[in-house]
Write a protein that binds this DNA or RNA. Structure first.
Lengths: 173, 173
DNA sequence: TGCTTCATGTAATAAGTTACATGATTGC
DNA sequence: GCAATCATGTAACTTATTACATGAAGCA
């Protein structure tokens, strides 16, 4: 029998640890703050909920919303201690830049400009989310730590872009 | 008919733009320097080569090695100008940290420590690869730019870890 | 009443890894 | 001669997305 995708279970159980909610809301919860660094689609969430309910990790309350059972909370805690699964790296920008000689300097600079815009947009999104969070709420303090990670990454990318642009422009063609 | 995965074609054509080589070597080429931010498996490479050969983008030389045809070079240049496909974000560390309240401070600190080790290893790998490259070679200059991106990202992650560790330790439990 | 959002689910499709099968070459 | 590496390919399996089908609830 196929082993269930543990990280999807983690995300679903985690969402339900905040409050009982429908599958639809689980998705919304994941999309909102968590969406900056994690996604789940309906095609994952509903089968996961069905699986978890069969296992006894989630139940239903009077209103029909999914709830986290004591067993589910235990499983969530166990999953939180497992090492993150690292996916194979796939960075489309760097793939293109690697063959930059073939593309020409102009194309590389264009790619960097597009990326810069996108990262800037992403940073703005993070700032917007940050503004909605309360630094004194014990739950939201952890969310702020994850936002901070995104901000560090984004700023590092911008710094690298500036450096790379300068390098490209200084080379003879 | 299913549209061929463009980024795999890009990686394969790019490898062949460096020199004619076997499919096996294409993989090795991708694994070595490019491997820090891109991967392809045999299950992708051989079908891609067959497809590209049928299209006339790659041919064979006397020794049976795959070569880039003029048409293939044109297609490579076209692909290099396409915007990178951005995959959905999936950061297992941040997913866990987000629900850190449930996990407890101790578990979060452990996760950070593991990540720190891994990033440090990754930075060492980048430095090792950097040492093998010649900054004056026009092809390898582009490879150095991509390595630099990895170094920026890695250092940013380490800085965020230090900051996050300090924050976690300052909180009341 | 009719429009939008909420809600649940499934089927088709896509993308990619792993493991296996098979054989040629090369170095010792 | 034998082991390791080079080389090509395929089949099974995972994982995940997208699109679709369906209908209830809220509100204008």
């Amino acid at each position: 029998m196929p082993r269930p995708p543990a990280q999807t279970d983690l995300a679903v159980l985690g969402a339900l640890s905040l409050a009982p909610m429908s599958g639809y809301r689980v998705r919304q919860e994941i999309v909102s703050t968590l969406g900056h660094f994690w996604t789940e689609s309906f095609g994952q969430i509903y089968p996961a909920l069905a699986r978890l309910e069969a296992r006894g990790d989630v139940g239903r309350d009077d209103a029909g919303r999914f709830t986290l059972t004591p067993a589910g909370r235990g499983r969530l805690r166990a999953l939180l201690q497992t090492p993150p699964e690292i996916g194979p790296p796939r960075n489309g920008l760097l793939l293109r830049l690697f063959f930059g000689r073939e593309a020409g300097r102009r194309t590389c600079l264009d790619l960097l400009a597009e990326t810069e815009q996108e990262v800037t947009r992403r940073l703005a999104g993070l700032a917007e989310t940050r503004a909605t969070l309360d630094p004194t709420d014990p739950d939201e303090r952890y969310a702020l730590l994850t936002l901070s990670a995104g901000e560090h990454q984004g700023r590092a990318t911008l710094a690298w872009i500036a450096e790379t642009r300068a390098a490209l422009e200084s080379w003879p063609d």
